[in-house]
């Protein structure tokens, strides 16, 4: 059970890298600036507060996938290329120890970098806006950090299944495109295959909502951002709950606990796939 030694060793190296501190500074700066802008450009305090949360959400939500995949995507392929894998495998470590340790370290680093953006954003909200309820934006930030955790673990799985850094970059880019942009096309494509037409109107079949909900970002959004009425009808972002896609009562697979299951499944499956690929190589 040496995963924690692997994690500690990897994290220690990460903390000493200049790049991660640069990334932290950039993320914190971008999030702080994004949160501050509405306060500086609008006069209405109530509107500007929700705008501030919204711009923090947009800023942090944009950088988190890059940070997480960036931290995760070449950890194992990189160790193989640099030759540190020779030590990791020459010592009595199981391959699961290595995948788990690396995943933990990269998740911790993601939480650190994304968290710094969230904290700076929250501080800006407190400092620049009047009588701010801190609960909702905190939940928004925690949700986005959780998105980062999933992307980081997906990145580690990619790093375990490719045999070079170049492959890792390709894999990470693919994961980003699929998870961040392309996912909503999946239920649409299925819909087209079934009906030979694209869905119209406001509602969708329940299976359509289910497929949409399998995206980790969507599942996390349902549990966090989409809880708040003012975020659902925000100025620039539209975070509809997946359950609003269908008519009638919310089925169990669109409930909040089911969303937690989706997120956990992504994390566990990624680690298992990473472990399995690593073992096969």
């Amino acid at each position: 059970m040496n995963w924690h030694y692997v994690a500690r060793t990897d994290l220690r190296g990460l903390i000493r890298s200049k790049l991660i501190w640069l990334a932290t500074a950039i993320v914190a700066g971008v999030c702080g600036l994004a949160t501050a802008v509405p306060a500086l450009v609008t006069d209405s305090p109530s509107l500007s507060y929700t705008l501030g949360v919204e711009t923090l959400f947009i800023a942090l939500g944009t950088v988190v996938p890059f940070v997480a995949l960036g931290l995760g995507h070449r950890v194992i392929a990189g160790a193989r290329e640099s030759g540190t894998m020779r030590f990791l495998l020459g010592l009595p470590n199981r391959r699961l120890d290595i995948v788990l340790g690396m995943a933990l370290s990269r998740v911790a680093a993601t939480i650190g970098v994304a968290g710094s953006g969230g904290i700076v954003g929250l501080l800006m909200l407190v400092g620049l806006y009047d009588s701010v309820p801190l609960g909702p934006p905190l939940l928004v930030v925690l949700g986005l950090i959780t998105v980062g955790v999933v992307y980081a673990v997906v990145g580690v799985a990619i790093s375990a299944s490719v045999d070079s850094s170049t492959g890792a970059v390709g894999g990470a880019f693919g994961a980003y495109v699929v998870l961040f942009f392309f996912w909503e096309r999946i239920p649409q494509a299925v819909y087209w295959l079934v009906n030979r037409s694209f869905p119209g109107g406001d509602t969708r079949p329940s299976w359509f909502a289910f497929l949409t909900r399998l995206n980790p970002g969507t599942a996390i959004g349902d549990i966090t951002v989409a809880r708040f009425e003012w975020m659902r009808n925000a100025e620039y972002v539209s975070v509809r709950r997946t359950s609003d896609l269908i008519e009638g009562d919310t089925p169990f697979y669109l409930s909040e606990p089911a969303g937690v299951v989706v997120v956990l499944t992504w994390v566990v499956a990624s680690i298992l796939i990473g472990y399995w690929s690593f073992r096969e190589q």
Partner: peptide, 20 residues
């Protein structure tokens, strides 16, 4: 053939091996 953990000290390498 191997690569060292570039950002770790010599002692930390040995401690890692000892821990494992």
């Amino acid at each position: 053939e191997f690569g060292l953990f570039e950002r770790l000290t010599g002692r930390e390498h040995v401690v890692f091996a000892q821990n494992c």
